[in-house]
Simulated assay, not measured.
Amino acid sequence: MEAKEGLRTVVGLMSGTSMDGIDAALLRTDGRDRVEALDFLTIPYDDGFRARLRGCLGQTGLGRSDRDGPVAEVERDLTDAHADAVHRLLDKAGVAAAEVELIGFHGHTIHHDPDRRITRQIGDGARLAAATGIAVVDDFRSADVCAGGQGAPLVPLFHRALAHGLPRPLAVLNIGGVANVSWIGPEAAKGEAEVVACDTGPGNALIDDWVLRHGLGRFDAGGALAAAGRVDAAALATLMAHPYFGRPAPKSLDRDAFDPAPVAALSPQDGAATLTAFTAESVARVVSHLPSPPVRWLVCGGGRHNATLMAMLADRLGVPVEPADLVGWDGDALEAQAFGYLAVRSRLGLPLSLPATTGVPAPMRGGLFHPVA
């Protein structure tokens, strides 16, 4: 593959907070304002591994040096699955491992409580480097959280790099297990933030868990189940009474921060409709915490495939709400691409987060480097 001046060929890997599988992206980037997407694939988890991974959620007691126990076994299998994803991606793209400089490996978040300065992503970067023959950067969030930041979201600087030439203020909304927004404003005056970010609230996680609990699959395909139901206004009001929604940005969430008890007695259809409305309403609520209302929302992640959710968002936000694909981005690949981009920033010693994106006291570097032994 012909190298381009200043650009590095990298792989970004994302598992994140969803239970779907691994997103793997191949890209070239300078870690600043140039990004070229090359290839992408998604590898779903099988049901058995998904159940094992779900059993790790909330576990905080395993230190990085401790490689025993059931969480460590899942971590090893998760890492090996990511190595397989790298090999399959490179085979698909016709690219040799020797042509790839770096892997950005997010791992899977099993617990996130930044107020207690805890964030935990499982995944063994050294093992991944050995299995692929490519150097790895992982552990992107810890430095930010240890410094008093929220550790999330980390994608806003990548969104800013992509957004050149688009009308601003622009909102980029990622709907994965948790939903997060990057507000990208006009070029900032001195002392003003050009990028503001936060987790808005639930994304797909509560909806997915609801559908799974009722034996109706792993997710609400296209939002069809929610479309067949009615929103329970009382249950929605109870959900929206959570104190998180009154907090200003930046702020972040754990996947399981919200108790779905208010919808427990509803039918599968009405529960899905109410939880979908909960995601949409929480996004709308964040607008008052942004410097100015966005003129457009570009949506990435799995949630953009949910037509019912997209319609609810458009109704509540009152401005264009569109899939990010309409501006030439791959809405499924963006988060994986972002961690390839952040891996390059890490190696260049550039910040991964800012006070206005995570609440960290100063622009914060991060990431842990694992060379090939």
Rank of each mutant, 00 (worst) to 15 (best):
R8T: 09
W210G: 12
S182M: 03
V35Y: 05
R160M: 07
G16M: 09
H82L: 02
P153F: 05
Y45I: 03
L41N: 08
R67H: 14
R365I: 07
T274D: 10
T358I: 06
T119I: 08
D256V: 00
L275G: 09
L53E: 04
S18G: 05
G6Y: 11
A226D: 04
A356G: 13
L212D: 13
A189T: 12
A333D: 12
A25C: 15
I43P: 00
V327R: 09
S282N: 05
G133D: 06
F369N: 00
P169G: 13
G191L: 12
R88Q: 15
R52I: 01
D77M: 04
H164A: 15
R88C: 06
H164Y: 01
H370N: 07
G201E: 09
G185Q: 11
R304T: 13
E75K: 02
A197Q: 11
H370E: 01
Q269C: 05
T276V: 13
R168D: 08
R213M: 05
P355D: 12
D91N: 08
V35I: 14
A284Y: 13
A307M: 03
H370L: 01
C146I: 07
H370T: 00
T119G: 11
P70L: 13
T308I: 00
S346Q: 07
D46F: 01
A277Y: 02
D77A: 15
H214I: 04
A257H: 14
A179E: 02
R141F: 01
W297A: 03
D315M: 03
L236H: 07
F49S: 04
A227F: 00
V137N: 06
G6Q: 10
R247S: 06
P355V: 10
T9R: 15
P371Y: 00
R345G: 05
A97P: 10
L317Q: 06
R160C: 02
A338Y: 08
H87K: 10
A197L: 10
G301L: 07
P260M: 04
S18A: 11
T109D: 07
M1A: 15
T109M: 08
V295I: 13
L368H: 10
V263F: 10
